[in-house]
Design a protein around this nucleic acid. Structure first.
Length: 174
DNA sequence: ACAAAGATCCGT
DNA sequence: CGGATCTTTGTA
């Protein structure tokens, strides 16, 4: 049955407890699924970036624990949303173990390019912050069977992060 | 209390 | 290339 098969394809929360650098390339080709006001949308992820711990100057957790970064210290599988430039919500998935702040920014999909445009399209805002990535919360991921070739580049928009700005932690399908 | 900067996007 | 637009954070 298609419905049951689909159910089995939902990525369990345990999947996100691995390290961000290991997970980031694995998210390419996965479905990002949003259910909102009765509509379900599936998009194929094709661009992500990893943010890795307090020592990574590009990572918000480089400031340590603050009201905003507290979410990144939760266990992998939580959703981290923040507003940037007063206009755009950024969608991140917390990864790794509790108290090890990491997150993967979902920068784009095959259908929608750009992290700000993506959240606008999916109607994602701060109400999802700190929630779990599950169907119950209206946002989750699914296995798709799609394999994408990809390359790595430095992350976008983090020139201030000194030597961390050079880390090839952006993964983009080609 | 205040100022500065920001994991972006769009129009000129 | 500059403006929009407002939250978070550091400093006083």
């Amino acid at each position: 049955m298609a419905g049951q098969r689909r159910q089995n394809r939902v990525l369990a929360l345990d999947f996100f407890k691995a390290d961000a650098l290991q997970l980031a390339p694995m998210l390419l080709g996965k479905y990002l699924v949003r259910e909102h006001e009765g509509n379900i949308v599936r998009l194929v992820i094709n661009e992500v970036e990893a943010y890795l711990g307090e020592e990574d100057l590009a990572c918000h957790a480089s400031k340590g624990r603050t009201p905003r970064t507290e979410v990144m210290y939760l266990e992998g599988g939580h959703i981290y949303i923040y507003l940037i430039y007063g206009m755009y919500y950024m969608l991140n998935i917390v990864t790794g173990k509790k108290d090890h702040p990491q997150a993967i920014l979902i920068r784009g999909t095959q259908e929608i390019s750009g992290p700000g445009r993506l959240t606008k399209f999916l109607q994602i805002d701060k109400t999802l912050n700190a929630k779990l990535l599950t169907p119950d919360n209206g946002l989750w991921m699914e296995e798709s069977g799609i394999k994408l070739n990809y390359k790595t580049t430095p992350r976008i928009g983090v020139a201030y992060a000194k030597e961390w700005a050079l880390k090839p932690w952006r993964y983009v399908a080609d």
